[in-house]
């Protein structure tokens, strides 16, 4: 198989995977009803998913393969904490971005 066809089939396949995963329980239609306690439980799922994607970006170096690479000299940690403090006080995106990036850059220079 040529590299071009490999990529075409891969994109088609990955698109199908996006469709299957996101409509997994939707395809069943009226054939079953989701129990109330399940709906109650998964209220925390979207928050948890975002945190689970975010936390390693803040607390581990990029391209890390395990938690053993945790290091307090990582500028991400300090930039991330600064961003949280900035958002707590300002409740706005732009100041959060500016403060977070400034502390990140400073910490990077400091620990370099």
């Amino acid at each position: 198989m040529s590299t071009d066809m490999y990529i075409v089939w891969l994109i088609a396949g990955m698109t199908c995977v996006s469709i299957c995963a996101r409509s997994f329980f939707l395809v069943f239609g009226e054939r079953f009803k989701v129990a109330d306690w399940i709906l109650e439980a998964i209220r925390f799922a979207p928050l948890a998913a975002m945190v689970a994607i975010l936390a390693p970006e803040l607390f581990l170096p990029s391209g890390a393969s395990s938690v053993a690479q945790f290091d307090l000299k990582l500028p991400n940690i300090w930039g991330g904490l600064a961003a949280m403090v900035a958002f707590y006080f300002t409740k706005k995106m732009i100041p959060t971005l500016i403060v977070g990036m400034m502390i990140y850059t400073a910490a990077k220079a400091l620990f370099a």
Binding site: L47, M50, V51, I53, L54, E57, L58, S62, P75, N76, G79, G80, A83, M84, F87, Y88, K92, M93, T96, L97, G100, M101, Y104, T105, K108
Partner: peptide
């Protein structure tokens, strides 16, 4: 450090 900017922007969504 754009990748980190993405993380900071997500902080403002999660908080």
């Amino acid at each position: 450090g754009l990748q980190f900017a993405g993380a900071v922007a997500l902080v403002a969504i999660v908080m």
